[in-house]
């Protein structure tokens, strides 16, 4: 079961969707699963891929590409499901996000994280905790609780 969400750690888990490098606080990541058969649920929003059997529980799976406004592509051998624990109505809830590839765990000290720019590149700053830089590449640190609380909204984070 989803344990307490540990926050306040400076470790961040990074992954790629499309051209962008994203990060979430390590406390939000519970598992990384290979891509399995996903049972689709008719009549749901396009970014909602379906449900999978996650050790006897039903885990909803979202497509990160669609959710974040990228074009859909074929899944590759690097594609996987990132299981995140997010807080919804005060309850920790497990949810899966399909990402193009997972990278590694990085440590960002609070002073390394800059606030998100409000203009340019089509970012919706409400869903972003901040931006950090790794080897001259930007890492978008996501506010996962926010992303899933607004499930009906298609997040236009990146415009390719």
């Amino acid at each position: 079961m989803a344990s307490e969400i540990i926050s306040g750690l400076n470790s961040y888990f990074t992954f790629r969707i499309g051209s962008e490098l994203f990060a979430v606080n390590i406390g939000n990541v519970t598992k990384i699963l290979g891509l399995t058969d996903i049972t689709k649920v008719p009549n749901s929003p396009r970014y909602f891929k379906g449900i999978i059997n996650h050790f006897g529980d039903v885990l909803p799976v979202f497509d990160g590409r669609i959710k974040f406004g990228f074009t859909e592509t074929e899944y590759t051998k690097n594609t996987c499901i990132l299981v995140l624990v997010v807080e919804i109505e005060g309850q920790p809830v497990n949810t899966g996000v399909i990402v193009d590839s997972v990278e590694k765990v990085l440590i960002f000290e609070p002073e390394q994280i800059k606030s998100a720019p409000t203009v340019g590149k089509g970012f919706n700053s409400e869903f972003i905790l901040g931006i950090a830089t790794v080897q001259s590449e930007f890492v978008i640190i996501l506010n996962v609780d926010k992303i899933f609380s607004e499930e009906e909204i298609n997040l236009i984070i990146a415009v390719e």
């Binding site: 049972t39 649920v41 008719p42 909602f48 449900i51 039903v58 109505e89 809830v93 499930e151």
Partner: peptide, 27 residues
């Protein structure tokens, strides 16, 4: 019956999902 979870509350034509013997899900 397993609940579809809080994230899928808007999905009301299914009351939940059930795990079949082969691990597959049935709505």
């Amino acid at each position: 019956i397993k609940s579809l979870g809080k994230l899928l509350n808007s999905q009301d034509i299914f009351s939940g999902a059930s795990i079949l013997g082969n691990g597959q899900l049935a709505l």
